[in-house]
């Protein structure tokens, strides 16, 4: 029988960068972090090529994202769980039910309870919630909230965006000049290369992900 390590090696070979990393938590329990857009193909690859059996999907709402965990029995009592992140702003992922009928109900259940849409699901009707419940009500879905306390969010956004929680605004710059001070100090707020270094550190320490910072919009993903 093929070992789990060999299966994982085949997955890595087949999916390259889409397979991020794997770790063994304890005997017979393997976890792999994978990219969202490759989950469907990975599950299919496991089912088609190995003696694998789909068990179920777990969904965890961590505030800003959902973590979807696809549990697959890969033989010999070993369970490989593929973990991927679904951003709450998107709240959708490809359905695996089109080739795995056993996933139909669990995807409908997650859809009901968390409001995650499974694209391509053959029968996406409600499963657990009463039909009279208004659209958009999902009992286990938490509000869009990250770890930064409300009052601190503007400062944290500024800290990541500019390396400083406060800016020297034009009226204050004028007052500084009246006091014969330079209008700005040579901080990360004005020295671009220095700001790039701060951004590198923010990424390297993983604070951008932890705080839920959107680099394109230059703000936190929650208000």
């Amino acid at each position: 029988m093929i070992s789990v390590e060999e299966i994982i090696s085949k997955l890595k070979e087949q999916f390259g960068d889409k397979f991020i990393r794997y770790y063994k938590k304890r005997d017979k329990r393997y976890f792999a972090n994978v990219e969202k857009d490759a989950v469907k193909s990975m599950v299919k690859f496991l089912i088609d090529n190995f003696d694998a059996r789909f068990i179920t999907i777990s969904c965890v709402d961590n505030g800003t994202d959902f973590e979807m965990v696809y549990h697959i029995d890969v033989g010999g009592g070993n369970v490989l769980s593929l973990r991927t992140i679904v951003k709450k702003e998107e709240s959708s992922i490809d359905s695996i039910a089109e080739f795995l009928p056993a996933a139909q109900w669990i995807e409908r259940e997650i859809s009901d309870l968390f409001g995650v849409k499974f694209e391509g699901h053959p029968d996406p009707r409600r499963l657990l919630l009463p039909f009279e419940l208004p659209e958009g009500v999902h009992p286990l879905r938490k509000p869009m909230e990250g770890v930064i306390p409300k009052d601190q969010r503007p400062s944290v956004e500024m800290l990541i965006t500019k390396g400083q929680p406060l800016e020297i605004a034009p009226p204050l710059a004028r007052r500084r000049e009246e006091l014969k001070l330079s209008s700005q100090l040579p901080t990360t707020a004005v020295v671009e290369d220095a700001l790039k270094e701060v951004h590198e550190i923010v990424k390297e320490t993983g604070f951008d992900k932890e705080a839920g910072y959107d680099w394109e919009k230059k703000r936190l993903r929650y208000k």
């Binding site: 601190q152 944290v156 800290l159 040579p186 901080t187 701060v198 320490t205 932890e210």
Partner: peptide, 28 residues
Amino acid sequence: ELEGASCCPEPVISKLVARKLWTALAAR
């Protein structure tokens, strides 16, 4: 002047919420 300085960062919230970032930015 300390050209390119960032926020220290502040020692209460950032230290508690993101100790690794707090240490690294201060070290920079």
